[in-house]
Amino acid sequence: MQLKEGVRIELKHVTKAYGDKPVLKGLNLGVEAGETLVVIGKSGQGKSVLLRLSAGLERPDSGEVLLNGIPADTYRNISAQKKPFRMAMVFQGSALLNSLSVFENVALYLKEHGMAKGDNLDRLVMDALTSVELEHARDLYPTELSGGMRKRAAIARALATRPDVLLFDEPTAELDPLLSAELAEVIQKIQSAHKMTIVVVTHNLVFARQVADRIALLEDGRIACSVKVGELLNAEYPPLRAFIEAAALA
């Protein structure tokens, strides 16, 4: 497949509240084109909200979310054929459509927008399934898959869109350590095959270290610190150290 340039993502002074509860409180974050950023943080800190804002699925109360300079909600409203770049997201619970087989789930984007048909569609879908080693499950339905297989099918569905940006929401949730390691390998393979911008939110620091170029800590509605993955173990910021020690990395 063709190498991608990636897309720069910027969140500037972003605030978001649900009812009386503020979740993001003036968050600033930049993700470079082609970079893999992992955002870690305790549960309920707004990691998934950050991702949904980046995907243009929700609007910030104030501040800006820009994708190569385009506001995320503007980007979301551009038709598939006219989008200047493609963004895909892998959801925490995989979010596969239960009424469709694995093949149909992966083919959905291409079929819906008339981007491929016949043998070409078959080839593109099988390429995506092969890249996550799921070609044997093409005719199965999501309810017949294990948690790890569902996650890989969701990644294949995202890859079939040939994205420039790939967002992962808690990819290791509900996966055992072996499946998490397997998933990290899949993401590493994607990184080496496609130069795309990847943002992962997780509270799994072991997984974060395996896939990240840079790790950012989300705390109290803001990015409290960010370090390159090679510098993680030397980080001195107390909440990040607490994370490292809790994950028994040091």
Partner: peptide
């Protein structure tokens, strides 16, 4: 799944 559909346009 609805959010997933939206990300797939």
């Amino acid at each position: 799944e609805i959010a997933a559909l939206r990300t797939l346009d």
